[in-house]
Structures are given as structure tokens and as C-alpha cells.
Design a protein around this nucleic acid. Structure first.
Lengths: 251, 251
DNA sequence: CGTATCGTTGAAGTTAGTCAATTCGAGTGG
DNA sequence: CCACTCGAATTGACTAACTTCAACGATACG
């Protein structure tokens, strides 16, 4: 899963020419290739793109982008979980999404980041200088198509999340979130399990689904009491999947 | 309550060559060209695209797309206002966005519409068969770039709306909505006014910002009583723009 | 002029938020 | 190995905000 050359790269100074440090042979048989934007490229193109990339590790809580600040880098998440959020002037926070392995950070290709992003847990990503990536992108229409597809998918996900935040009760929000995470993990990992990993804290969940930590906690406890879920370390087990799906569908 | 599936999308025979019906000379000096995706095309390309298009009028409430149904048409809004929404099984409705002149409906280019769309007021749009548009798009990478930019913009808008629905109080929601509409109208019309046209009903506003019609009405009344806005037919006048902007910024 | 639709307003009811106390668990040091 | 500490999670009592339900008023339209 992890290319052997990785250990060298992790603590390498970030401003050294990436190509010198990282041949990225791993790109060719990367598990995530089919689910990430790299899937749009043939081997030669991927090799070329790999020259532009540099693998980096991020410790939990390490910041990738700051809302409104310049960001000259875009990322392809390899491992871990990144949260994307907006900070309000009163200190509250709205998480607009979690990025999982295979997800792309920087779809907008804007000079300034529209949101903050930081690592929920220790994570790794392929990093590209925006200018170089843009230049490569301009020569590869099929990559642009793939990026567009990703943007549309993000947009649709955001719009569905809108429906949730606009209309759903606390229990439905929590259950939707669990099903959503289950679906996303299974899209990466291949097979789906009733055990849903939740690397993020209760506060993160609350800030994502528009509730307070108290309400999230109470709701999870109630669901466990009713034997609909089982709370396990860093995750949840869905005991009554059909029932949960029915609750979510029913509004 | 809302979308009668009996309403046919296109009552013109769909297999007539559009060009015969609509020479579209108007495309060349269309006011919306700079703000819509057509802006990405040079005159010859636009002429070619115009051959694929057919202008259509939609009466208020006329349905453009139904959530989950096949849709072989994509639209470029010319005039009026279109609402995009999701219908919940219990009959409630969450509006995910309003499309104004210059906006594109069908960014996802998926076979099935992710949302319902219908006209808020009498509206007009350029319609393209999806397959034909897709084929044209495949030959014009700069149009794809423009479409990508539009998708990213929609995504960012949706994500900012998420923040609103997740965190904001009723008054802030209403004021944000007013500022948002003001900004969007001014992006089209050129100059911005303190009078914000609101072609949609109170119920529409409520379903967009995640409140009930009662709360929207009460909030607007309270804002007018405090002399911060003035309610006029089909719109609102912002009496204290700086104060309103401050309220919205402050959370 | 009657009817229908939309918008406004009032009173009562719910839901989730707030604030604060308590518990839990991982990590640390004696 | 146990006590201590710190942050995260849970839980309870109370409150605020919004919804619900219902009545009423305005406006448009045949």
C-alpha cells in the first residue's frame, strides 16, 4: 500500500524540486488510481504528472489551506481524512465536507482558498503546485473532464447536504451522516460493511450536520439504547441497516 | 402539491431540427453572452452552437426537469427565474437554488436529473439536446473550462449556503438571502440597486433558507418595523445596507 | 361580488441549544 | 501499578428559537 520510497519523502524539505526526490513509481499501481482523478490518465501521462507531484504527510490538525489566503498548491488525498470548513467571526465552525482518500482538494483552482482545510487524523496527500498542475491540465482535456465530473459530484453532494440541513430532524441528520460515511468508505475500499469508521470527533460531526455536540451525543446514545446502532471505538456499527435506511428515506 | 408529472417538458415535436424553427441570429449580440457559458465561444462557434439550440418559453410553474427522471435537454436561462428543488417523501420541499438569466441548468450532464426544476415566473431559455451539446462540448475544451468554472462556482455557492443553513439564525438567513439576491441581480444587470427584486413567493424563500413561511413573514415584518428594509411589491428595498451587511458578517 | 391564493399574525407546542456537572479514556509520572 | 491530569464525550435541567395550527387580512381574478 505504501511505496517504500515514502519514508524518505515525509520529512524532506517541501521546497526542494519534487522530481528529484520522488520518482513516484508507486503512482502506476496506486490503489486509488481508479477512484481518483489520476484514473483519467494513461501510464505515460501519469508518469508525467508524477514528476509534478510530491507526496507529503500531514499530522492530525495540520493545516492545508486557510480560508481567503493564497494557496499555490492543490492536493490529491492518499490516506487519512481532511476536513473542509468555514470559520465564522464568532468562532463557530461549519464543516462543509470531509475529504477521504481519492478526493481532490483545490477543484476550484482559484488563487485563494474558499475554505479552511486541515487534517482530522494523520494523513498523506500528493501535492501539486497549482501553476504546474494548471499547465498540465490545459494540455489534457480528458483530465479536465474528469475534474469537471468531480466538481459536479461535489456540487451535487453539497446540494443534497443542503436538503439535510434545511429540513431534517436531529435523528435523521445523524443517521444520514452514518449512511453517507458508510457509502463513501465502501466506494474506496470496495466492499461495504455495517461498521462505519468515524475518524472525526463528535464536535466535527456536529459541525458538519448542523447540530451541537450535545445533541449528536444524545442522539447517538438514544440510537444505541434502541439497539439500532452500536458505538465502537472510532466508529459505529449499524445494527438495523434496513430500518435506518427507512428512517432516512422517510424524512 | 408542486410538480404535476403530467406537465410535458417540451410540447414542440422534439425531433424537428431546431435550426429550422430558430435561426437564433440574436445569439450574436445577446446581452447575456458575457455572463453565460456562451461567453467562452468566438462568433463562429457560437453560430454553430446556435444551430443546436431552440429557444423556449416556460409559463410560471411549468416543469423543466423532474428529480430522478431522464432528461435529454439542458438549458441556458435567458429570462425569468427557475427554482431547483428536492421533494421529500412527506411533501416538504427544499429549494437548492434559483437560476437567473445566464445560469445553466444541467451542469451535471447526467442522464437523470438530480433535482426538480420549474419556472417561478414566466421564463425563457435556450434548450439543447444533451447528446448534441455533449458532442459539441467534446470538441471545445475552452467551453468545458467555462462549464467547469460554472460548476465550481455553483459548488462554492452551495457550500456557502450550507454554512448558512447549518449555523445562522432566522434573521441572518433572511438578510443573507436578500444580499445574495441583490448581488446576483447586479452581476447580471450591471449596476446594483438597494431595491432587490424577489420574483419568488414567501414559501419559496422559506424553502430555500430552511425556515417556515411564518418565520420568514415574521422576520420580514420585524425588519420593516425596525426600518431596516421596506417591503415593496415583488421585492424589498434595503434601507440600511451597511447595517445589514454588518449583521450578516457578524454571524 | 364571491372565491381562491398568498401573506400576516397570534398562541401553544417542540426541538434543539445552552450551561454546567459528571464520566470516560488515554497518556504521564510517581 | 496506581494516582493524576487533560481533553473528549455524556448527561441533566433549563431556556430560546422556531414550528405548528389556526384565524384573519389582502389582493387578484373570473
Amino acid at each position: 500500500m505504501m511505496p517504500p520510497s515514502d519514508a524518505l519523502l515525509l520529512d524532506a524539505p517541501p521546497d526542494l524540486p519534487a522530481a528529484l526526490l520522488a520518482p513516484q513509481a508507486g503512482c502506476m499501481n496506486c490503489d486509488l488510481r481508479p477512484v481518483s482523478i489520476c484514473g483519467a490518465l494513461v501510464d505515460e501521462e501519469l508518469a508525467e504528472l508524477a514528476q509534478l507531484s510530491e507526496r507529503r504527510s500531514f499530522a492530525a490538525r495540520e493545516v492545508l489551506t486557510i480560508q481567503g489566503d493564497r494557496s499555490d498548491v492543490v492536493f490529491n488525498v492518499l490516506a487519512g481524512t481532511i476536513r473542509l470548513y468555514s470559520l465564522l467571526p464568532d468562532g463557530r465552525r461549519q464543516i462543509v465536507g470531509f475529504l477521504l482518500p481519492g478526493d481532490f482538494l483545490g477543484l476550484s483552482m482559484e488563487e485563494r482558498s474558499p475554505f479552511c482545510a486541515d487534517a482530522v487524523v494523520d494523513s498523506r496527500a500528493c501535492c501539486f503546485r497549482r501553476a504546474g498542475f494548471q499547465e498540465f491540465l490545459d494540455r489534457k482535456p480528458h483530465l479536465l473532464r474528469r475534474l469537471h465530473r468531480a466538481a459536479v459530484q461535489e456540487m451535487t453532494m453539497a446540494q443534497h447536504h443542503l436538503v439535510l440541513l434545511g429540513k431534517a430532524r436531529a435523528e435523521v441528520r445523524v443517521l444520514s451522516f452514518l449512511l453517507h460515511m458508510r457509502r463513501r468508505w465502501s466506494a474506496i475500499g470496495g466492499r461495504s460493511s455495517v461498521t462505519v469508521p468515524l475518524p472525526m470527533s463528535r464536535q466535527d460531526i456536529a459541525d458538519y450536520i448542523g447540530l451541537t455536540i450535545s445533541t449528536v451525543s444524545r442522539t447517538l446514545t438514544a440510537l444505541e439504547r434502541d439497539r439500532r446502532i452500536l458505538i465502537v471505538p472510532d466508529g459505529v456499527r449499524l445494527l438495523d441497516l434496513p430500518g435506518i435506511e427507512a428512517s432516512v428515506a422517510g424524512g
